[in-house]
Each structure stands twice: as structure tokens, then as C-alpha cells.
Write a protein that binds this DNA or RNA. Structure first.
Lengths: 131, 131
DNA sequence: CTGTATCCGTGCTGATACTG
DNA sequence: CAGTATCAGCACGGATACAG
């Protein structure tokens, strides 16, 4: 059982590198916006709350570079650009599912642990034996 | 098929939040160092190439807060502190496995796509039709 | 509509020095 | 050995203005 992030150089590039690529602030959300069907630039912009044009364009470019999405441009007036997941992109979604499932089940445990630590830290700050 | 990052607020917190927690520069590598057995601070420091004391301590604290690892301190001289994965942490490793498998299979495709794009970009910069 | 270009603040990170 | 404290650099991301 290992995820091989400190083994040989070749192994390290896999998970760590994948996270470096899709683990940023927006990529996952943008990908999620494309899950169901091809979708236009502005639609993504609306679907992904809070993203700026700059970041949306950057994220889409990155995903396109990695072969996870396709960009299709229609030279109409006004112009129209659609983005869709490639086969590779769809398979990534599938691979992410198990992690998603884990997160659904265990995020509560993580939050609880975090809250517990926070509470303990609070206690430490109280004057000892002030009863 | 969805990873629910733009759905209701409750869903969005799962995968995105998980990535926010373990998707940073070091967490995965530190976790990987703990996979096999309890391990001491300095051992991790050596196992995870390039990490600074500051980042190692921070990362360990974060993992401990999330309930993914346990810290055990032995008040010997010199002091000795061991870190180990909790049940939760070990289950996370399992969940990461499928993503790891995917990465192993497809990172080549992603790299290829990236290289292809880079080459295309090069072509665009060349003077057209100069034989 | 679909981007690009620029500026700028913030936060992450590494380096270094210090402590129990 | 196992951290903590402080500072400085830089990359990331946001806001805004502009372009095809």
C-alpha cells in the first residue's frame, strides 16, 4: 500500500504531479461544470461562482493542454466557443469518484477532528486550576 | 457522473475541500513517508526530499488536526517523536490508490498532450511557408 | 461573446537563526 | 532531536481595462 511520492523519481511524478495540475483553486470546479455536456465559455463563468475571466481562461487553457478538454470555436457572430471533456477527462472524473465518495463519508470525521483540536487548543489557553 | 463541485454548498465542500487540505505542495509526500510504519520527525525530514523544517512541522500539524495522523512523544533524552497514520489516514491512502492508478496509466497521455500543444505553439511562431 | 494585458495585494514558501 | 520565530521572495489569484 503506497502512493509512491517519495520513491523513484518516475513514481513521484504521478500523484504529486496530478495534484499539481488539478489541485489548484479552480480546475476541479471548472471540470465539474463540463461533466454533463459541452458548454460555452460564459456558461462556465456563471456555473463556477466567483471565478474571474483571467482564471477561467487560464484554467481552461491548462486543461486543454493536458488533453482533458477540447475547445471548439464557431466563427459565428457573435463568436461561440464550446468546451467539452475528452475521453481522458471523463476517465479522470471516474477516477475522482472514489476519492469523492471517501470525502463524502469522511469529511465529517476530519471536521470533527479539527474542531476537537481547536477546542483542546482553547483549553490550553485557559489558566490552569482556576477553580 | 459528477464530482459535485458546483452543486449545493454542502457538496462543494467535499472534493474541493479535500484538495484544499491535501493538495498542497508537501502533504501527499509526507503522508507517503508514513505509509509503512510509525516514523520519527527527522526520518520524515530525510524521506521527503527538499522540505524545510518549517513546512514539515506545518504539514504534520495540519495532518494531525485533520485526524489523519497521530503524534506520539517520548520524553527521553534526546526527545523522540513518532508519527503514524490513523485509521482515517490509512483509509485515505486506499481512496487515493485509484487516483494513483489512473495517474500511472494516463500521466503519459497528459504529458504527450502537453508536449503536442507545446510543439504546435512553436509552429505558430515560425514564419509560415518558408519551406 | 471570448478572450488578453497589466497591475497589485495576499499568502505560501524557503532560509536562517534561535529554543527546550 | 524536535521544533519555533522571523523575515524576505515569489507565485497565485483578483480587479480592471482593453481587444478581436
Amino acid at each position: 500500500m503506497s502512493i509512491g511520492c517519495n520513491d523513484e523519481p518516475g513514481m513521484c511524478l504521478s500523484l504529486t504531479d496530478l495534484f499539481a495540475r488539478i489541485g489548484d483553486k479552480w480546475t476541479l470546479k471548472v471540470v465539474d461544470a463540463l461533466v454533463h455536456r459541452p458548454i460555452r465559455y460564459n456558461e462556465i463563468h456563471q456555473a463556477v461562482a466567483g471565478i474571474s475571466q483571467r482564471m477561467l481562461t487560464r484554467t481552461l487553457k491548462g486543461l486543454e493542454q493536458d488533453g482533458l478538454i477540447n475547445r471548439t470555436m464557431y466563427l459565428t457572430i457573435p463568436p461561440r466557443v464550446e468546451y467539452e471533456l475528452t475521453e481522458l477527462g471523463q476517465q479522470l472524473i471516474v477516477a475522482l469518484q472514489s476519492l469523492y465518495d471517501w470525502a463524502l463519508v469522511h469529511q465529517q470525521a476530519m471536521s470533527a477532528a479539527r474542531a476537537n483540536v481547536a477546542r483542546t487548543a482553547q483549553d490550553e489557553k485557559l489558566p490552569p486550576g482556576h477553580d
